[in-house]
Every structure is written in structure tokens, then in C-alpha cells.
Amino acid sequence: MTLTVASDYDIRIAPIGASHFSWLEERGYAGWVVLSDEHTRTHCLPLLAPFLTGKKVVYIDVPAGERFKHLDTCRHIWEAMFAGGVGRRWCCLNLGGGVIGDMGGFAAATFKRGIDFVQIPTTLLSQVDASVGGKLGIDFHEVKNSIGLFANPRSVWIDPAFLRTLPERELRSGYAEVIKHALIADGAEWETLRRGTELRSIDWEKVITHSVALKREIVEEDPYERDRRKALNFGHTIGHAVESFFLPRPERLFHGEAVAIGMITESWISRQQGLLGTADLEAIADYCTELYGHQEVPRASFIQLIELMRQDKKNEGDEINFTLLESPGRAVVNQAATPEVILESLRYYNSLAK
């Protein structure tokens, strides 16, 4: 399956093979960079190795994890590119999850004013979310993706086989974005998804294709996030703040786990604002807690969380901005909520603990 995004690049959902690298060779690059972390180097790079033999390749490794998605790691990438003789006519293959895609794309798009790059997402999260839209960036001052830019890859190669390398928790984390896409854009798909919680039995090629198509439609309509694309932020205003708070702590949350908290709390705000019905709120809260469990958000963190939300790049003026739900499948952008309402939504979430 091949999906074209705004005529700029293709997303290929298929086993990665010789045709992918023939396409790359046809572009006449002087060489290729392969960026990986310790996990993808071990589990994913061997799938590409037969097609890299005899090529001019610079291999760069970075440590895995969100806590390394910062300027110091970018500096390491840029220094390795310089040391390897990488020039403007090279292409960077970003082999990894969302961190590698965001940071590797950012490093490539800024190196010598920009070299081409191909995203090869290896996690469900990166396949259904980060693969579409050209948003690149790194974390700064403990605020996620606060330094970055929009730049499209030359192509995106999605191979569902990579999902077999993932632990169950990582797979569930990515699934939160599948849920989000359905909640903001496809109510019928939401009804289908919420009938199942056994992820290993899912037809991933079908689910990924549908979820990517939903995001592609939104991105094509609003590539620079001025209006409808903001719908993709559902669950992320509170979710990003919660994720940032837990990041340096032993009980840190994966991105999808934090977004699940965000979807529950922002659904509660949607109901409080008179948009979402009580039955839909309860269905979303029940499904998310069944899939992701419950991690209490400490009351002592509430003020810090509000301050993190105030740094969110979606805000306008002094208001904290949200995407909310009218109903499953219908999102409403540019909705403000007061700190008091946000804190009440967090208290609601904490009350769900069994």
C-alpha cells in the first residue's frame, strides 16, 4: 500500500526490500547516513543490512529514549556527519521510533541547511503518528518538541514486521495514537476499536493503513497546523505535561500512557464545557484505563503541570488551548480551559483508581 501526502512524499506500507533501496539509488545520492539507537541497531538494522553492503554509508548511533532528545545528542549527530564527510547530496535514513524520527529529521533538515532524509519508523507510535506531517523537533527546557521545524521526508517506509520486535508495553503506547485518530476523525472506527483489547491479534497492516490515512487527510488540509490539524493535539495538552513531569522519575510513563491520561482528562473537560455526553466520556475513560491501567498523578505536581501546559506551543495569549470532543469522531479546536477546570479534570482522573 502506498499513500501520497500532498504530492511531496509517499508513505509505503509494505515489507522493506530491494525495491525501496533501488528507489533510493535512483536518486543519485553521494552516500547514505543510517541513524539508529541501541535497540534498533540490534533488532532492526539486520533487516536492512543486506541492502547496505557495498554502499557508502555512515552509521551513527545515539542512546535510546526521550530523555536524550536534546541539543547535545543533535551535536553528536552533526559531529559524526562532519567526521564522515557527509555533504548536501547525502540522504539520512532514520531507523527508529518517534525520538529518532523527530530528532534525526531535525538534525538532517538543519545540517548544511538541509539534507534529504527518509523515515523508517520501527514502533507503532512512530508508524501511525510521527510518519505523517513533517513535524520535527527536540525537547528544550523540559518542554517537549519546543525547538523544531516543519520539513517533509523524501519518503516514509512502514514495515509492520518491525512491530514483532516491540515489547507489549511499547505496542500499547503506540496504540494510543490509533485511538486518538479514531476519536477525532472516525466515530465508526472508535466503536470498532473499543470492542477489543488484545493487541497481538490485530491485523496491523489494516489498522496502520487506516490510521495513517486519517492523519494524512487532516495534514493535507492544514499542513502548518493553523486550523484543523490542531485536532491531532487531542489528549496532548495535558498528556505532554504529564509525560514531562514523569520523565525524570523512576515511574516514568511512555508517551501513549501519558496521552491516555490526556484523552481521559480532556474528554472530561469536553463534557464540562457542554460538548461531550456523559456516556461517551465514561466509554473513553473505561477503555483507556482498561488498556493502560491507572497511574495516579500526584496532587503535589498539579501546579507544575499547569506551568508546563502554559509553555505549550499551541497556546494563544495567556489561555491554555485544547482540542476537545463534541462526540467520538468530531473534534473542536481552539478551546480554552481555566486552570481550575484543568485541575478538576486531573482530580477526576485520579478518582478512577480502583
Rank of each mutant, 00 (worst) to 15 (best):
K55T: 09
E142L: 12
S19G: 05
E290P: 00
N94A: 00
L276C: 01
D159F: 03
L93S: 02
S327P: 01
V33P: 02
L325I: 08
S19E: 14
S173L: 04
R299V: 15
C91Y: 11
P223N: 02
S126Q: 00
G187Y: 13
G235P: 00
H294F: 05
R216S: 07
H70T: 11
S301K: 05
Y224F: 15
F111K: 05
H76G: 06
L214H: 11
A151D: 13
D102W: 06
T338Q: 12
G65M: 09
G105H: 12
G134Q: 00
D129P: 08
W157H: 11
I184A: 07
Y9F: 00
T122R: 02
G96F: 05
H181C: 13
E191S: 14
K206V: 13
R330L: 15
A130Q: 05
F140D: 11
T122I: 08
S201G: 12
S345A: 12
D159G: 10
L247T: 01
G133I: 00
W268S: 04
G317P: 12
I238G: 04
F21C: 03
S211L: 00
L124N: 07
H181Y: 10
W32H: 00
H181F: 06
H141K: 15
P298V: 01
K135N: 02
V332S: 13
D280G: 07
T289P: 00
P63D: 07
I120N: 11
A336V: 10
R216N: 01
P248N: 08
G84W: 03
E217C: 12
A336G: 07
G104N: 08
F322R: 02
R172S: 11
Q273T: 04
A185F: 12
E220V: 02
D222V: 09
Y29Q: 01
S301Y: 04
D10P: 07
C92S: 14
I60N: 09
S345G: 10
K112I: 14
Q273G: 08
Y287L: 05
Q295W: 03
G85A: 11
R194G: 13
